[in-house]
């Protein structure tokens, strides 16, 4: 697994997670567990896969980091409404992490259940506010998901981090999430002014693509 340095002791990893070695915490977002049950309820016939996919990739992550907590910054599950199978998958996930000495910490996202025990909207950690990102974000330094940023070129779709000294936007952990092409999207001026950079990963590789503003400028020249 490859890591690149982010701000304030955070590392960006090629497994779509941020990692804070001192705090022994890793953060992921937009797992969308139980996506297949949601599509099944709407009538689609497909092979179950999200639990297996998620555990396989978390196994790779845990092989490379030492953590006590895994924070999911929202949209851990796909269906906000009650779903027995998703709940079962979630229990399995929690137990699997527990067996490896990792506690699962959840933050509420727009897809997460509205009934039952409420998950917090945000968590403070090492001076950073970790939240999902569907509601307006406030805080000096924020880490969020929700946007599913990617870079696209030809047949390559590479999930990416958007990083500035006070902001980290996480890529979607789930490959089922439709990606937002960072080069074709419009971004708040404030974010660009912070010097937001794009760090993209694919197939185990992770590379810093530099300031987003430059990438966008280069693409409009074509």
């Amino acid at each position: 697994m490859i890591t690149l340095e982010g701000p304030d002791g955070w590392l960006l990893t090629s497994e779509s997670a941020t990692y804070h070695p001192v705090e022994r915490v890793a953060v992921i977002a937009d797992v969308h567990l139980g996506y297949e049950w949601s599509r099944a309820a709407a009538g689609d016939s497909l092979p179950p896969h999200t639990l297996e996919d998620t555990l396989t990739r978390l196994a790779r992550l845990l092989d490379a980091v030492v953590i006590e907590r895994l924070i999911v910054a929202g949209d851990l599950v796909e269906k906000a409404g009650p779903c027995v199978r998703t709940a079962a998958d979630l229990r399995t996930l929690r137990n699997w992490l527990g067996e490896r000495g990792v506690a699962l910490v959840t933050i509420h996202g727009n897809h997460d259940p509205r009934r039952g025990p409420t998950w917090p909207i945000s968590i403070e950690l090492a001076g950073w506010t970790i939240t999902h990102g569907h509601l307006p974000i406030s805080g000096e330094r924020t880490m969020s998901g929700h946007l599913h940023p990617v870079i696209r070129s030809g047949s390559l779709t590479a999930p990416c981090f958007l990083v500035s000294p006070k902001r980290i936007v996480l890529p979607a952990f789930s490959p089922n999430a439709a990606g937002l092409n960072v080069i074709e999207s419009r971004w708040p001026q404030a974010w660009i002014a912070e010097g937001l950079r794009c760090v993209a990963g694919a197939g185990g590789e992770l590379l810093d693509f530099g300031p987003l503003a430059d990438l966008i400028a280069k693409s409009t020249l074509r």
Partner: peptide
């Protein structure tokens, strides 16, 4: 995908 990413990076 890793090679494609590297080539894209070199180009951009």
């Amino acid at each position: 995908p890793a090679d494609a990413l590297r080539r894209l990076h070199a180009r951009l």
